[in-house]
Design a protein around this nucleic acid. Structure first.
Lengths: 156, 156
DNA sequence: TAAAATATGAAAATGGGTTTCATTTTCATC
DNA sequence: GATGAAAATGAAACCCATTTTCATATTTTA
């Protein structure tokens, strides 16, 4: 139940920019704060439609871009072919663990790695602006499921 | 001048698969071995056309897929919107430094980082299959160029 | 409540990347 | 050096996530 104040904050920020609030926009914002932290545009679209069936695909896209511009969302391209967005609460860098089974995304950071990265860039006189690190594999649940299936096949 | 034996090796491998050699294919292979280690499809297309102006775009794509299947090339998606390929000489994992000025790509590996990554995955019971790490920024040359331009603007 | 500004969504456009298909080339065999 | 089956080719059509267009609807302001 802490979604509401955030949603209001977003609406304030939008208002500051001379943007208007509307039924559709509110539905999309509500869906945005109710979604998991990393989601595809389609996922958000489905969610928003549950709140207001008249919401259009285009508007969801547009609103996400708006949220990205205002800093509340950040687009992420992993390697499954379409853009995901993540909600940004406090702006801090992090990297991702991506489950290739269920598509779920977790975050992590490691100070040691960050430091080493800087050293590497420095040693090559490379003026690093940002970086990405993605670990792909199976999350605990998916891995267990796979193990079961393999065993089943062996026995069957 | 060590491109030739490699090109012959590729042609042998293709022959083993029952594939035929052809003027076009040879032009593309020659372009492939003459290109920089990481290149876009367009880059290779232009190069191949210089060797045989009749080479088509589709064939370049197809040949790259073929090279990827045979293990001589590996597709890479960075975040500038299109696929690059890299030549694979010896198959060993590495990560990338990508210049956002000129698009050039360098490689690196760091054993310490690899180790830490494994630890992170392990601690989350995440069955890691692979990972990607990309450092974005300006290479030495581009950074110098930018510094000059900034100075010029300040004085002008 | 009229005018001005902004939001909306259906449909069309975009643009890498892929597939199709009629035609051409290769190569083993005669 | 002819033959034909298999493979290669390229132009054009297609795919599909994302973006743009544009006529209409909604919100805000005055």
């Amino acid at each position: 139940m802490k979604a509401k104040p955030l949603q209001e904050l977003v609406q304030c920020r939008l208002a500051e920019r001379g943007l208007k609030s509307s039924r559709r926009r509110e539905a999309i914002l509500k869906a945005f704060f109710g979604a998991r932290e990393h989601f595809t545009v389609d996922e958000l679209y489905e969610r928003a439609k549950m709140l207001d069936p008249k919401v259009g695909y285009t508007t969801v896209w547009r609103t996400l871009k708006l949220l990205a511009e205002t800093g509340f969302a950040a687009p992420q391209k992993f390697h499954d072919g379409f853009i995901r967005y993540e909600r940004v609460i406090e702006e801090r860098h992090h990297d991702h663990l991506i489950c290739i089974g269920c598509g779920n995304v977790e975050e992590f950071t490691d100070a040691r790695i960050e430091k080493i990265q800087e050293t590497i860039a420095l040693s090559r006189r490379f003026a690093m602006t940002h970086h990405r690190m993605e670990l792909y594999g199976y999350c605990r649940a998916c891995d267990a499921r796979r193990a079961t299936r393999r065993k089943g096949r062996r026995n069957g």
